[in-house]
């Protein structure tokens, strides 16, 4: 087991290197010259050369990459062009906010999605299944930023129950919780629908297998049969949960923008409009690392549940 984890950790390194190359290349692929962004339009040629030298842009690309990578590994992601603050600080604060939202919306979406999916599978073809499927379809079909706006209109504007914007970072825990309620719901809708559908089909796959009949044939009660079905469909479900959690972490740009939630999505949005490439690189690199680690965790969990997966 631990050897498997160790090997997967080693295998994660090339994936991370690949991600870092893409992030690094962004500077050179993005429209607009990064030098032009820091210098006034009428800068002289000497000034341009001096800045190029200062930033290391006069060296060949591989050398630039290795130097950049060396700094990144030590936690130095550079300075924000817009705020002159160290990128690592901005990323850290926004990541904390995003993590909170990702976790709360995932708990909501995973819990409700798994429950709906299992209900639908065990009552396949009856009204409960149809209701659960309808909820799931609505969940995956509604754009989450639109759902966010509708939630703001109902609960903030009409009913005036919950705040619409910001995170109230210094307003105490209750204020923080009140601020995160609406974005959590908006962010949970899509994964809820996706998970409900995946869980339903995974559980139905298992229910159709002969061993479920065999379990009933040896006189097991509903609870034990249910446990078998859940354990067998778990590897497939966990894969989706891992992916969805990753999306929650990085894919919430629009929802964070709608609710002005100071997370990574909000920061990304800001960085894109300000052409703040160091911030953009930092956020993406950190999110990519999270994604890789999350996939690793999913793989390890799967091996733990289904011993067949560890065989090669």
């Amino acid at each position: 087991m631990w050897r498997y984890v160790g090997r997967r950790l080693v295998l994660a390194i090339p994936t991370l290197l690949g991600a870092s190359i893409i992030v690094f290349a962004m500077v050179h692929l993005a429209p607009g010259d990064p030098i032009a962004a820091v210098l006034p339009v009428d800068a002289s040629k000497e000034q341009v050369e001096a800045v190029k030298k200062a930033y290391g842009f006069d060296k060949p690309l591989p050398v630039q990459y290795l130097k950049w990578l060396g700094r990144v590994v030590t936690g130095d992601l550079g300075k924000s062009i817009a705020t002159r603050r160290a990128v690592i600080l901005d990323v850290r604060d926004s990541l904390a906010n995003s993590l909170v939202l990702a976790i709360s919306s995932s708990v909501l979406a995973f819990g409700a999605g798994i429950a709906l999916g299992l209900l639908a599978a065990f009552w396949q073809g009856r009204w409960l299944d149809k209701l659960a499927s309808a909820v799931a379809v609505v969940g995956v079909s509604v754009p989450h930023y639109w759902a966010g706006i509708i939630l703001i209109i109902i609960f903030s504007v009409q009913l005036n129950w919950l705040p619409a914007m910001g995170a109230a970072a210094d307003g105490g825990i209750v204020a923080y919780l009140r601020h995160m309620t609406l974005p959590t719901i908006a962010l949970a809708l899509i994964p809820l629908g996706v998970i409900a559908r995946v869980v339903r089909s995974a559980a139905l796959d298992i229910l159709a297998q002969e061993f479920v009949l065999a379990l009933r044939a040896k006189g097991l009660g509903h609870r034990r049969v249910f446990t078998h079905v859940v354990k067998n469909s778990a590897p497939q479900i966990i894969t989706v949960l891992g992916l969805q959690f990753g999306f929650q972490l990085g894919g919430s740009v629009l929802v964070e923008a709608v609710f002005s939630w100071p997370g990574t999505g909000y920061l990304l949005n800001l960085a894109i409009f300000q052409r703040d490439i160091p911030v953009l690189q930092g956020v993406i690199l950190v999110l990519a690392t999270f994604f890789v680690l999350l996939n690793l965790l999913v793989d390890v969990l799967q091996t733990y549940i289904d011993p067949r997966i560890a065989r090669h």
């Binding site: 061993f211 009949l213 065999a214 379990l215 040896k218 354990k231 067998n232 067949r308």
Partner: peptide
């Protein structure tokens, strides 16, 4: 009453 199935590979739970 108990039952023995034709294909034990599919009639046994693979993760137990």
């Amino acid at each position: 009453v108990s039952m023995v199935f034709q294909e034990p590979m599919t009639a046994l739970d693979p993760v137990y």
